[in-house]
């Protein structure tokens, strides 16, 4: 099968790899329908290995995907051949300290499809049955490939302190920022303010439900947010960029007693004003990953129409164009290129 195989920074090769062997036990062989290029994939492409373990020489990337079940192991009882599914990338040990406490995302022996195991930028991949969530017929498979990034921000919207009707500032309108807009709206938050300077991203944010998009080239964002909120700041802020200045903005733009969600990954150490937590009783919380059940909840919201990620899909292409028209496009054109979906089949 053709696969996009990562060998190092700027070295993703389209290679013919053997098809996976027939699944055994609880494993399931799936044929990938659509797989999105994640911002983390882009980090791996540009500067990896980051999530890829240092000892791994090569791995097929791709972890945001929908698929169809084509073969099952002898102990599989939760899916059947032909099922349309979304795959949770976490393959957990179910035995460690954290798994025993149902904190699977912190599994000490965590394996990740697309980083530690071959992923979905290939026609076939293997997952265990507990990683699969069936996709209802009314949800397009393209949307199924967006369940993973939507689950990341939906996890944020489920945190204590994020309340019905509360206002939120979302910093950055890339794929995660836009997912935050969509899930904030679906979760019943009140006014949604977005800080973004790229015009097409700003337009998509508005289309997805942002009430105001603040361009830092036109306005001083902190002053603007405070003015829009009677001087207080918003109840929740979510940082989706991963830079020191945007982290500062997220902390400052939260009202006293508010919640700061940090979803952006930084590339270098930062100076952080942690004292805002004491001075104003703000809570600063890392926000990464999701609980398994949150995939199902996102699928329910998609099925009901309360979550519409369609504006995020800006490009769809075949696997053989993934480097030139996928990764390189994301590097070249950050504004108009939001979510690239790749079809390996």
């Amino acid at each position: 099968m053709l696969a996009a195989n990562w060998h190092g920074p700027k070295d993703i090769r389209l290679e013919e790899l053997p098809d996976p062997i027939e699944p055994t036990g609880e494993d399931v062989l799936v044929e990938v329908s659509w797989c999105g290029i994640c911002g983390t994939d882009l980090h791996e492409y540009l500067a990896g290995p980051i999530f890829i373990p240092p000892h791994v020489d090569e791995v097929v990337l791709g972890h945001e995907f929908s698929a169809r079940v084509v073969a099952i192991g002898d102990q599989v009882d939760s899916v059947a051949i032909g099922d349309r599914v979304v795959v949770i990338p976490h393959r957990v040990c179910r035995e460690c300290h954290f798994c025993r406490r149902l904190m699977f995302q912190h599994c000490r022996n965590l394996q990740l499809i697309g980083y530690t195991r071959n992923g979905a930028f290939a026609r076939f991949t293997i997952a265990r049955q507990d990683q699969l969530v069936v996709l209802p017929a009314e949800i397009p498979e393209e949307f199924g490939a967006l369940v993973e990034p939507l689950a990341v921000t939906f996890h944020g919207m489920r945190q204590p302190g994020v309340e019905l009707g509360a206002d939120i500032t979302i910093i950055g309108a890339g794929p995660i920022g836009l997912s935050a807009v969509a899930t904030a709206k679906a979760a019943g938050l009140g006014r949604i303010y977005v800080v973004e300077m790229l015009p097409q991203r700003a337009a998509i944010a508005r289309a997805m439900g942002a009430d105001e998009v603040l361009d830092p080239r036109d306005v001083e964002p902190l002053a603007a947010i405070r003015e829009l909120t009677g001087g207080e700041g918003t109840s929740v802020t979510m940082e989706c960029v991963g830079r020191e200045e945007t982290m500062d903005l997220a902390i400052q733009a939260a009202r006293p007693g508010g919640l700061v969600l940090l979803a952006g990954i930084t590339e270098s150490p930062s100076d952080v004003d942690l004292n805002a937590a004491v001075r104003d009783e703000k809570e600063i919380r890392g926000c990464i990953g999701y609980f398994d059940g949150e995939f199902g909840a996102v699928i329910e919201l998609l099925a009901s129409g309360r979550l519409d990620p369609a504006p995020m899909i800006t490009h769809k292409l075949e696997l053989d164009r993934i480097v030139a028209d996928g990764f390189e496009l994301l590097v070249r054109d950050r504004d108009s290129c939001i979510k690239v979906l790749v079809s390996p089949s």
């Binding site: 995302q105 912190h106 982290m247 940090l262 979803a263 952006g264 990954i265 930084t266 150490p269 930062s270 100076d271 952080v272 004003d273 942690l274 004292n275 805002a276 937590a277 004491v278 001075r279 104003d280 009783e281 703000k282 809570e283 600063i284 919380r285 890392g286 926000c287 990464i288 990953g289």
Partner: peptide, 28 residues
Amino acid sequence: VLVADDATRVPMDINLLVMGDKRVQGAR
């Protein structure tokens, strides 16, 4: 939980919080 008040900024790898899914709260 930060209990003491001090305005000095903390030079740190913020990924400790993000990747660790940790939270920082304050009590004044």
